[in-house]
């Protein structure tokens, strides 16, 4: 997972599998992005697998962003992400 700073936003490129086994690193990445206090963009185009643990973490990140006053949005979320969010009832809260 790469994190590229663009002048006005922090882009996080999610890799193809986002599940409980990689979330400790992913959380660190999100926390690092949050510290920039800039809009965060999650590139979900490559995600082929996402589980409820990952959805929970991202969901919590969205709440945190709202409280901290920065925005989080998705760039090209894959069908997998959208389906998983819809099945888990977090579509709206995750800005999908």
């Amino acid at each position: 997972m790469d994190n590229g700073d663009i002048s006005s936003e922090t882009l996080i490129e999610c890799e193809d599998s986002l599940d409980v086994s990689v979330l400790t690193d992913f959380k660190a990445l999100l926390a690092q992005a949050a510290e920039q206090n800039m809009p965060v963009v999650l590139d979900g185009s490559r995600i082929e697998r996402i589980d409820a643990a990952a959805l929970q973490l991202i969901y919590s990140f969205f709440i945190h962003a709202k409280d901290a006053g920065f925005s989080v949005s998705w760039r090209a979320p894959s069908d997998t992400v959208c389906n998983a969010a819809r099945l888990s009832g977090v579509t709206e809260a995750m800005g999908l």
Binding site: V20, A53, Q56, Y59, S60, I63, H64, R86, V90, A93
Partner: peptide, 24 residues
């Protein structure tokens, strides 16, 4: 039709990503 319940969800800083806090 699924509704998520996040009442048990800790703050982002405190969340252990390997634990489940949501219910449905």
């Amino acid at each position: 039709q699924v509704k998520v319940n996040d009442s048990g969800l800790p703050s982002f800083a405190d969340i252990d990503p390997e634990d489940c806090f949501l219910s449905w």
